[in-house]
Design a protein around this nucleic acid. Sequence first.
DNA 1: TGAATAGTGTCTTTCAGACAATATGCC
DNA 2: GGCATATTGTCTGAAAGACACTATTCA
Lengths: 231, 231
Amino acid sequence: MGKTKKTKLIPEKPHVAVDIVIFTIIKDRLSILLIRRGVAPFKGQWALPGGRVNKNEPLEKAAARELGEETGVKDIYLEQLYTFGAPFRDPRGRTISVAYFALISKLPKLKATTDAEDAQWFPVRKIPQRLGFDHNEIISYALKRLRWKLEYTNIASNLLPKYFTLSELQRVYEIILGKKLDKRNFRKRILSLGLIKPTRKKRKNVAYRPPQLWKFITHKHIVLDKRELVF
Amino acid sequence: MGKTKKTKLIPEKPHVAVDIVIFTIIKDRLSILLIRRGVAPFKGQWALPGGRVNKNEPLEKAAARELGEETGVKDIYLEQLYTFGAPFRDPRGRTISVAYFALISKLPKLKATTDAEDAQWFPVRKIPQRLGFDHNEIISYALKRLRWKLEYTNIASNLLPKYFTLSELQRVYEIILGKKLDKRNFRKRILSLGLIKPTRKKRKNVAYRPPQLWKFITHKHIVLDKRELVF
DNA sequence: TGAATAGTGTCTTTCAGACAATATGCC
DNA sequence: GGCATATTGTCTGAAAGACACTATTCA
């Protein structure tokens, strides 16, 4: 017996991974991208896209990379959510997962990857009850964060094209919050925030009064007033 | 040459650690516990208490354990803050740190531990500009979260004894928010939240009108109204 | 009775929410 | 002119903020 190896003194290293809740709006429904797992564990079940963090790769880069691998999309809104680290959440061995959420507006073609048999957008109300790992919990957390952010930041800019009508903006809010909003009150509030401005354009070729087109003053993430203190 | 070892295919595992921002109020100043590092890296510099996560140890348990090791305190308020994972934040090797923040009211005797030469409470305004690692950033983040939580939750219960006067409660708010509050408006707002209730006791042996003593209705963490959506 | 802090009420402004009629362009 | 959606304002109630005087106990 030689002397105890130094590694014995260091706690066993867990794996570190990122998982991403990617939101978009499809046919007036808030949807999340899920992957059907092609390998164990949870083979055949749906789960969030994600994967291991590479050596010397920043966490957010890892999330962006996984996102790009699944959707081909770059430069989208990405925000760290929470870190999940229950000891047996992954049967392959201790895995710490840093969860992110992402928002995209233009629907990409979904790619197939090595680990994934299949990728599919699920409306939030039709998400399978039993995703792999603790991913239902992560999604629940992401939904809360998204709804909160919607009310107190300009995050909606990531779910809309550059130019949009106030009705389209309102629809995004209604879809995400899951309730109807009063048109007059909605406009009053949104305009008072000073996040969007009218353009000189109107939407053409509609069989009704052409609506004004608006744009966000900045695409940069803005948190409103004292709630700025949150992050 | 045998076949390539399986471990070659798996990304190199980083270390996983927790760091804790422990707040308390000492002599009317919001203070944070720092440890003077007794070993490299950053030997001699101040840093947040923290350490590696053990095998099969939940993240929050690890944070609670580190906290107990430094302060001897158990059962205190602990909340996950954010996960920091820049590739070279720790010179010893890639380390993902899950940051927590904690609140304590009764000041414990500080213990010395193996890794720590010294432990000391620093008022937030006197925190050294150059802590070890990225700990200044973590503290900045924790302060924002604390201020936000103060306004929209009953978190202040963790910084006060069981019974307290309204003036003492107001002082906690003023200290943390860093500004004076109007006594009448403060009382109106706090009472309207329904988080505290009067007791039959009054503080005795004071050289002025004896104040009413109050208590929090519950010590359980409560997030107010729709801001509940945050967490 | 003086010192020190406790305890209380009104007014104004702002914001959220309820609510309905007119405007515009296309066919 | 009919259709479909766009656009606009008022009232009310709730909450936040500014502001100053009286009450109580002790020494």
